[in-house]
Design a binder for these strands. Sequence first.
RNA 1: GGUGGAGUGGCCGAGAGGCGAGGCUCAGGACUGCAAAUCCUGCCACACGGGUUCAAAUCCCGUCUCCACCUCCA
Length: 461
Amino acid sequence: MTLSLYNTMTRTTSEFKPLVEGKVGIYLCGATVQGAPHIGHIRSGVNFDILRRWLTHLGYDVTFIRNVTDIDDKILHKAVHENIPWWEVAMKYEKAFAWAYETLNVQSPTYEPRATGHITQMVELMQTLIDNGSAYAPGNGDVYLDVRALKSYLTLSNQKLDDLQSTGDSEDSFKKDPRDFALWKAAKPGDPSWPTPWGAGRPGWHLECSAMAHAYLGAEFDIHGGGLDLIFPHHENEIAQSESAGWGFAKVWMHNAWVTTSGEKMSKSLGNSLLVSEIVKKVRPIELRWYLGSAHYRSMVEFSFEALEENSINFRRIEGFLIRASEILQRTPDISISEKFAAAMNDDLAVPTALADISDLVREGNSAITAGDNQSLGTIAAQVRGALYILGCDPFDSVFASGAGSNSSAMDGLVSLALAQREAARARKDFAAADAIRDQILELGIIIEDTPAGPRWTLAR
RNA sequence: GGUGGAGUGGCCGAGAGGCGAGGCUCAGGACUGCAAAUCCUGCCACACGGGUUCAAAUCCCGUCUCCACCUCCA
């Protein structure tokens, strides 16, 4: 059984073959740090984190690059607006993203390059492109890529150059063709700039990613990821620049779909952003991650708090099973991968199909608990935990320490005291007193369940 | 105008020629002092109109509706 992935370039799902046996290089377009992360941003991080975890499980040595775009128009605008230096804006939101990734258990990239740290590589790339006639510097300080000189263009979005709507941009008089795009933007007064042979300025967005991908992954690499909206123009332009420089560039292109609200794409301009920092006040981070990760990465997620809550209930059912299993087995379940889960994941990360397997396993596991079959329980619990680990939602992961098994011994002692009184009341058939204790404890946020092995308690979520 | 995606039961969501994924909700049952948790059973489907086929949610033709991208975007 081998891994198949959908490639946006070919519009088909085919077997994944790494360029170098046993190794995978991934470049994911990360954030432009101009605002706090909303759940759409973080979905991309979660989806590709699942891909990375799965590749790692399959035994690949994964080099995962996720860049930070720390210089761009919006960052500069924000700096002016807030009257602080542009680098303060960039760092502030870079930290906000880092917090969100960490909170949602997204593994840290192998390398996380910043655009401003790779100006040298960008200048070198531009020099190559100008030398071979692919790009030109018209003298105003800008550098453009000459799209008419390209052997091929728009192969990823499958469009024709002439079908593109004209931009109606009248300020582009220096361009040979209105569809030529800027590799480098001439410095404006007051803006940060870096020197180049063609004048001082700052990098265009597309140039950054080509230069950084090349710096860390080489002329060609396995997988390039990003959001659906990056296909055009960002990824097309990355391809154009990189191929013009003679690089093979990415072999597989993967794009995650949107998180939408009310059927519309979330975006800053619509003002309906749902910040990660706000949502984790309403549900636990592990539940938000479960919600974002449990849909197929190429399917749109229509966000609603109702759906989020429903998904959380589903997750708690699975989590509850694992916690009960660990109590009965008196140890944390192992991590193993079931064949069905593996088959689903190998089919272009078919997480929803894999979820059906998890549900079946949980049902079987619960039945094993009832039957007192601890051997089966151990096997099943390990497979459930293994699946959750790949999805980044392992309740025993220390990242989610506020979840399972974190009840302090002091608290356990106090609750046990109350439970002992309740058991005494039940023994003398004083059910009014027993129920009163249960109700009072419930008001404090603690749920009591009577099991054949005696009462157990958990914190209400 | 160009490119791409979607329409499945009360709700959310898989599947891609033949056995109704799964979850939530609802109804009933088992268990329980009562609950909770859990298990079992049931209810309710493939946007519309044609066609191909022994067989269509799935393939083909047409129609309707919705969404995204076409130089800010995860």
